[in-house]
Design a protein around this nucleic acid. Sequence first.
RNA 1: GCGAGGGUGGCGGAAUUGGCAGACGCACUAGACUUAGGAUCUAGCGGUAUAACCGUGGGGGUUCAAGUCCCCCCUCUCGCACCA
Length: 829
Amino acid sequence: MEAEYNPHAIEKRWQQRWLEEKTFATGRGGEKYYLLEMFPYPSGKIHMGHVRNYSIGDVVARYQRMQGRDVLHPMGWDAFGMPAENAAIAHGVHPAAWTRRNIDEMRAQLRRMGFSYDWDRELATCDPDYYRWEQVFFLKMLEKGLVYKKKSQVNWCETCQTVLANEQVENGCCWRCGEETEGKDLEQWFFRITAYAEELLAGCDELKEGWPERVITMQKNWIGKSVGAEIDFPVEGRELKITVFTTRQDTLYGATFMSLAPDHPLAAELARGTGQEEAVAAFVDKMRRQERSDRDLAQLEKEGVFTGSYCLNPVTGRKMPIYLANFVLSGYGTGAVMAVPAHDQRDFEFARMYDLPIIVVIQPEGEERLDPATLTEAYTGEGVLVNSDRFDGCPNRKALDLIAAYLEEQGIGKKAITYRLRDWGVSRQRYWGAPIPIIYCDKCGVVPVPEKDLPVTLPEDVDLDGSGGSPLARVESFVKTTCPQCGAAARRETDTMDTFVESSWYYMRYACADYDQGPLEREAVDKWLPVDHYIGGIEHAILHLLYSRFFTRVLRDLGYIKFSEPFTRLLTQGMVIKDGAKMSKSKGNVVDPNALIEKYGADTARMFSLFASPPELDLEWNDQGVEGSFRFLSRLWRLVYALLPALNGVEAYNGSIAEVPAAYAGLRRKTHQTISRVRSDVEERMHFNTAISAVMELVNELKSYSCDQAREDEILAALLREAVETVILLLAPIVPHICEELWAEIGGSGELAYAPLPEVDPDSLIEDTVLVVVQINGKVRERLTVARDLDSEEVKKLALASSRVQKYTDGKTLRKVIVIPNKLVNIVV
RNA sequence: GCGAGGGUGGCGGAAUUGGCAGACGCACUAGACUUAGGAUCUAGCGGUAUAACCGUGGGGGUUCAAGUCCCCCCUCUCGCACCA
């Protein structure tokens, strides 16, 4: 054994060995455990976020193996996407070649980190053997009506030259490049995720145990369920009605006008012949232009225009002017809102702006009567109905149900539920993605590619010049085909699928990465799925995680799988930041993992990223902290080096604490306390930072023993052996290379990666004497060491007898003495 | 505006049930070893007027006892944002 810790040679040796011996392949027996981290986009270089994410995952994977589980821990590549295409445009490299090269580079880097993947299951989503199955899913979904094509206004990113799904637009900007998006009318393919809205929402309850509440809340809000009613308002003098959606049908009697979205289909129709045609057209036009420039809709003043038409309140018969209003969204509900200015702030502002009538229909109990004339804001609280005919006096909560039922009875409305969630637009006008398996025939129309003709492969020979439009549309050999139904000349769909489709099912494919008879091998998937523990960044709280939950349900309904929730437990780790900001090239605060590995080795990089903070918090990068982690590993190395002669050939202590001489009982106790702390920190809380500090304490304690001492005392040698083995075993999942090496040096038995974790001896945790704190009026004045479980009266006597205590009690009256066994005495004087 | 989560030494962070606030690490200080030290080891390290007092964003409360529970306020981060 070398005297100094030299990570590079060690790490290289063990990494090679793990690879050659396929140490981390599954099938060694034990209960299955599927641990997965979100797979990376192969940008070419791993970054600190990856190091952290995968270090956390690797600890869990290795820990579970040492717990006797059969662990599936795969890695692959989210390999389709725009950076490859942009690189092609900028540097003339083919996206396929660029991607392959990056994958090779990143795979090597991940190996250098010593992560325990089963590399035989590696997959890349740009591989036709992967995306061909996705095309199969597309066709089956089409058959089931879960895929459809429609022309609608979609989010267009000019920089990325493609359409984006709603989930991929943040504050009106592209999630990828940050450019503002614009509305564009395009014909697009959609996945009917809304068909699963209710189930996706209900499923959230199932996830409460294993998912962070934050993520569940975000998903729930995104789905955005509202329970209310749809109500029909007849248009005066025409055979037309306007249907609104409202959650406040209890305020129906107070509806005094109607607001429609500026792009409501009836807008022009309602204005016709009223003299308002021009005003309406001008307003609609203005709104359309404003859409792009003014994103801060919430700040915008209420604005609208009278259409010239009226509708009738179906319960009061009141004539209600119909307005177009800038705050009504066409995409939500029915795009029409009954306006109740007394009880809705937006309607109130609008009414004041255009001098529209306000009727109070809910009166807060026990308060002064609300007066429309003096109202300064809408009253949105609870109360009792007034001015509401037969419902007067009814509490408004109760009225919600009663009025909904009444509307149904009268045939003028019904209970209704609306979701905020929209269908998932999956068409992308880019090259580097999975082709959508559809053919357009002039005679037969939209024709799915027959399954036997799959995959529809991406043509290699493509001209990527960044000129816009779908690049595939310019590849004649790809576009030109024949109709599978009638044989006539036909064209292929030239859009590709959103890359989030690939990541919606890759975790299932790992169970059977080489299977070629279908997308999923039933037996393998039944065995391994769902994922027991999924680890990744919070940025996918909605996007990837929602799509995956949807896709899982689709595949279940297509008969491929039996489960509904893909990820039983989810850990969202925080960002890696430096100098108070997220690491980024533009800020110049990027730390390169490669440089770190070269300087300190992978174990140091792993250890620091686990030690600096608990996983769910942001991690502040600190170069000196890294140095500290390296120093600890060096200290550990030197400790084992120094004790080695006394440890070789010695069996770890295996007896009871009762037989340990008093002088060494503390060592035994510390060893087992450490096991206990590490186990609960890792198993229950996943707080590796405190687990590591517990081991550091044990190592600090071990420093006070010398090799010579141990050579003279068999029991001490056995205890030290036990302690050193414990340190190595507990740290093995965190810093595997150095631990493997030390394990080999001390002649540890068996393969470390599968060595059982040490068990706690409960007797060794118990101290014979305990420190009892003595407080006078809540302030610590004395510390007493007494026998454990000493009778409370005895403890009290001892406390009161202490000279230091007497100094405070002399001449005072004892009011009360509280004794907490084995902990504290509080004397109140 | 709504929702969620934070605020503890110079710094990252501990404190699992209300029971010694500051574990562990970094930085810092002193000493040892040394030709040398940005290596290593030992010791110290919340503040201050140091037998004492103060101290977990601020103020109040409950309690023998509060970082932890309750009320009010300030502040930061994240998410949603005219969703009818």
